[in-house]
Design a protein around this nucleic acid. Structure first.
Length: 371
DNA sequence: CAACTGTGTCATTGT
DNA sequence: AGACAATGACACAGT
């Protein structure tokens, strides 16, 4: 029933791997990721007896074992996880003792670099390797329960600098029943992702000597989950549920898978949320800018209007004085503008009336309006 | 060394 | 009911 998850080359972290002792040129070692070269990987197993830590370190690390003293707790956990007869539940319990929730409180900066490749027999590669013990998800893909071929590949230095290693991760062909929602995971898509990732990794390799493996990635490795965190997060709900259902997983593995997925989704959501927040701030700043411009424009307009009003007032005033300077009462005396006002009625008639009358008339009009 | 920033994570709430 | 998204709050590393 688990045939729908059969990555032909799923990466597994194993303890009983074989590897190449002699330090080949890196490009040759990288080829060990690909099945056709797996047959020439031989090494006396005795070299690895007594320590499962070898798989956790690069050759450089092994030459300088003190470099990882700070991460000793993590190393212990990882090595526990890799022990023969490892119990995912036990490891999970250890993890829970050291960190909050279901995760680990581990230092995220270290240079652990190690891969092992698991290949299916069906693809016709050499089989001169002893079969691996199966531990739930460690054999996700189903066909790895038996007739597994695997080889350990060790990169001196930064795994992320190994373009082939990254490509290999992207090129995992997890079919997941090929749901429509996974149409994006075409070879072209992987190729694009790979090119982008490759450039990013190159940049990082140039800029920094440190590698970064997330907590979840380490946990997934420790529990032998042969899926990348990205895959776990990005696969469809159906695929994810199918994966959980069709593989005999321990509670710890299921829990970890769900946590990885939840954290991964939330991480993306947080990034989107922050981006949205920044955009909202930028939009508001733009609004403030526009409103300030509008305010300046309205101020100018207001100033213009005030100017016009003053001009009209002035003209009216001049007209007023001009009229009164020409007016004479019935005895031929000038009319005092302080005692009279010019009253324009609604029918267009213009009267010169005493101020006290004009005031009482205004009051009458107001009362009339209020009624 | 304090202040600030970016990021991952958890808890909670809404869809 | 469960999955997921959105978001505030916190911790932590880096600047």
């Amino acid at each position: 029933t688990n045939s729908s998850f059969s990555p032909p080359d799923a990466i597994l972290l194993r303890t009983d791997y074989t590897t190449q002792l002699n330090s080949k040129p890196r490009h040759l070692q990288r080829q060990e990721f690909f099945p056709q070269t797996s047959s020439d990987i031989t090494i006396p197993e005795s070299l690895f007896h007594g320590s499962n830590l070898i798989g956790l370190f690069s050759a450089a690390d092994l030459r300088n074992p003190t470099a990882h003293e700070d991460n000793f707790d993590e190393i212990k956990l990882m090595s526990l996880a890799l022990e023969e007869g490892f119990s995912p539940i036990e490891v999970s319990q250890i993890f829970e003792e050291t960190g909050s929730n279901s995760g680990l409180s581990l230092n995220s900066n270290h240079s652990t670099t190690s891969y092992a490749v698991c290949c299916e027999d069906s693809v016709g590669y050499s089989s001169d390797v002893k079969s691996a013990p199966s531990h739930g998800l460690g054999v996700v893909g189903g066909h790895c329960q038996e007739n597994i071929k695997y080889s350990h590949v060790e990169y001196p230095g930064d795994a992320e600098c190994s373009t082939e290693a990254t490509l290999q991760q992207f090129l995992h062909n997890h079919t997941y029943n090929q749901l429509p929602s996974q149409a994006a995971f075409t070879p072209e898509h992987y190729q694009q992702m790979w090119m982008k990732k490759s450039n990013e990794v190159k940049d990082r390799c140039h800029n920094s000597t440190a590698t970064h493996q997330s907590r979840d990635e380490r946990c997934a490795k420790a529990l032998r989950i042969p899926f990348s965190v990205d895959e776990i997060v990005s696969m469809s709900v159906d695929s994810f549920n199918t994966m959980l259902a069709e593989n005999q997983l321990t509670a710890a593995q299921v829990s970890l898978l769900r946590d990885i997925r939840r954290r991964g989704k939330n991480k993306v959501a947080a990034q989107k949320c922050r981006k949205r927040k920044l955009n909202a701030i930028l939009n508001l700043e733009e609004d403030v800018c526009n409103l300030q411009t509008q305010k300046e424009s309205l101020k100018k307009e207001h100033s213009q209007c005030s100017k016009s009003i003053n001009q009209i007032k002035q003209k009216l005033n001049n007209l007023y004085h001009d009229i009164f300077s020409r007016l004479r009462d019935d005895q031929g005396r000038p009319v005092n503008p302080c005692q009279y006002v010019i009253n324009c009625s609604s029918n267009g008639s213009v009267f010169i009336i005493p101020k006290h009358l004009a005031k009482s008339e205004q009051d009458n009009r107001k009362e009339h309006k209020q009624k």
